[in-house]
Deep mutational scan, measured.
Amino acid sequence: MSIQHFRVALIPFFAAFCLPVFAHPETLVKVKDAEDQLGARVGYIELDLNSGKILESFRPEERFPMMSTFKVLLCGAVLSRVDAGQEQLGRRIHYSQNDLVEYSPVTEKHLTDGMTVRELCSAAITMSDNTAANLLLTTIGGPKELTAFLHNMGDHVTRLDRWEPELNEAIPNDERDTTMPAAMATTLRKLLTGELLTLASRQQLIDWMEADKVAGPLLRSALPAGWFIADKSGAGERGSRGIIAALGPDGKPSRIVVIYTTGSQATMDERNRQIAEIGASLIKHW
């Protein structure tokens, strides 16, 4: 067993022997301040990774656009098919120029040779490549099948209805392509620590998230040296922004954090800054 596999296998073990965790309302004060600064709703939840206990939450059962955070769930569904012998990570998928959609920095470079399922998941999570996500959605049967996968996990809230990039439209009061912070946090925890996926697939999923290259201005910008984070960000229309993450000190994750916002007129930089400040408060009061 590799060191990384050992780390993920012992996530519940280490967490069980940690000192009790206590909620700190100071972080919620910052979440509410972010709402004021952005002029928009902000949803927040913080779960203990081992027990699933909610440590703090704000608007945990209000719907927010998922945006690209759905790509972690998508690759979880792909990995479940791999575990069941219905898919192979090494299978190569070929596609054409007509398949390319807006923001496809990886797939646009491989029109000639195609990409493997493993490479597509890596591109979808680490670079948020939209064509990679659409190609992977095709392998599982489309958005409705991802929703069905989530329902089978016990998540009857999260739903995907459309493809990239239309799913980022974020129309107010439109339930399409949305989740709730509580539902997303619980589902992410199941994917990373539950028995739904094999140990190898859980490790692969967290490795992809740990290698995320496009979430630097968010929670990662607030992390002290030595902290662990595996995350996936999302951005959408109407001032929408979000991030889902597993993080913790001492090089291992111990909490799940989900943050979503929508309806702001603020710039992307300002949305990023507010999420980073929430992260800084979380870490300060850990």
Score class of each variant (00 low, 15 high):
residue 25 P to D: 03
residue 25 P to V: 01
residue 28 L to Y: 03
residue 28 L to P: 08
residue 28 L to T: 10
residue 30 K to G: 15
residue 36 D to K: 07
residue 36 D to N: 12
residue 37 Q to W: 11
residue 39 G to V: 08
residue 40 A to D: 06
residue 42 V to A: 08
residue 43 G to W: 03
residue 44 Y to F: 10
residue 47 L to Q: 02
residue 50 N to I: 10
residue 52 G to M: 12
residue 53 K to D: 10
residue 53 K to P: 03
residue 53 K to N: 10
residue 54 I to C: 06
residue 56 E to G: 10
residue 59 R to H: 09
residue 59 R to A: 05
residue 60 P to R: 04
residue 63 R to G: 08
residue 63 R to P: 09
residue 66 M to G: 03
residue 67 M to D: 03
residue 70 F to D: 13
residue 72 V to Y: 03
residue 73 L to Y: 03
residue 74 L to Q: 00
residue 75 C to E: 01
residue 76 G to Q: 05
residue 80 S to C: 06
residue 81 R to A: 07
residue 81 R to C: 01
residue 83 D to K: 10
residue 85 G to N: 09
residue 86 Q to T: 08
residue 87 E to T: 05
residue 88 Q to G: 05
residue 89 L to E: 02
residue 90 G to E: 07
residue 91 R to D: 07
residue 91 R to C: 03
residue 96 S to W: 03
residue 96 S to A: 12
residue 96 S to H: 05
residue 100 L to I: 13
residue 100 L to T: 07
residue 102 E to W: 00
residue 103 Y to C: 07
residue 104 S to Q: 02
residue 105 P to G: 06
residue 106 V to C: 07
residue 106 V to E: 02
residue 107 T to S: 08
residue 108 E to M: 05
residue 110 H to K: 09
residue 112 T to K: 03
residue 112 T to R: 04
residue 113 D to W: 02
residue 113 D to R: 07
residue 113 D to C: 03
residue 114 G to L: 10
residue 116 T to L: 02
residue 118 R to D: 11
residue 118 R to E: 07
residue 120 L to Q: 04
residue 120 L to M: 05
residue 121 C to P: 00
residue 122 S to V: 12
residue 122 S to C: 03
residue 125 I to T: 07
residue 127 M to P: 10
residue 127 M to K: 14
residue 128 S to E: 14
residue 128 S to N: 14
residue 130 N to K: 10
residue 132 A to G: 05
residue 134 N to Y: 04
residue 136 L to W: 07
residue 139 T to A: 09
residue 143 P to K: 03
residue 145 E to M: 09
residue 146 L to K: 00
residue 146 L to T: 02
residue 148 A to T: 07
residue 153 M to D: 05
residue 154 G to D: 11
residue 158 T to L: 10
residue 159 R to I: 02
residue 160 L to G: 12
residue 161 D to Y: 04
residue 161 D to E: 01
residue 161 D to P: 03
residue 164 E to F: 00
residue 167 L to Y: 02
residue 167 L to W: 07
residue 167 L to C: 00
residue 173 N to A: 05
residue 174 D to H: 05
residue 174 D to P: 02
residue 174 D to I: 02
residue 181 P to D: 05
residue 183 A to I: 06
residue 184 M to Q: 10
residue 184 M to N: 07
residue 186 T to Q: 03
residue 187 T to N: 07
residue 191 L to E: 13
residue 193 T to C: 07
residue 198 T to P: 02
residue 201 S to H: 13
residue 202 R to Q: 02
residue 204 Q to I: 03
residue 204 Q to G: 01
residue 204 Q to P: 00
residue 205 L to H: 07
residue 206 I to V: 12
residue 207 D to E: 05
residue 208 W to E: 09
residue 208 W to Q: 05
residue 210 E to K: 13
residue 212 D to C: 15
residue 212 D to R: 14
residue 214 V to P: 15
residue 214 V to A: 15
residue 221 S to C: 12
residue 224 P to Y: 09
residue 224 P to M: 15
residue 226 G to L: 05
residue 227 W to F: 11
residue 227 W to Q: 09
residue 228 F to Y: 14
residue 231 D to V: 15
residue 232 K to M: 15
residue 236 G to H: 11
residue 237 E to N: 00
residue 238 R to K: 15
residue 239 G to I: 14
residue 243 I to H: 10
residue 243 I to F: 14
residue 245 A to G: 10
residue 247 L to T: 10
residue 247 L to M: 10
residue 250 D to S: 12
residue 259 I to E: 08
residue 260 Y to N: 09
residue 261 T to P: 14
residue 262 T to E: 07
residue 264 S to E: 03
residue 264 S to N: 01
residue 265 Q to T: 08
residue 267 T to P: 10
residue 268 M to V: 14
residue 275 I to R: 09
residue 275 I to F: 15
residue 281 S to V: 08
residue 282 L to D: 11
residue 283 I to Q: 14
residue 283 I to T: 07
residue 284 K to D: 05
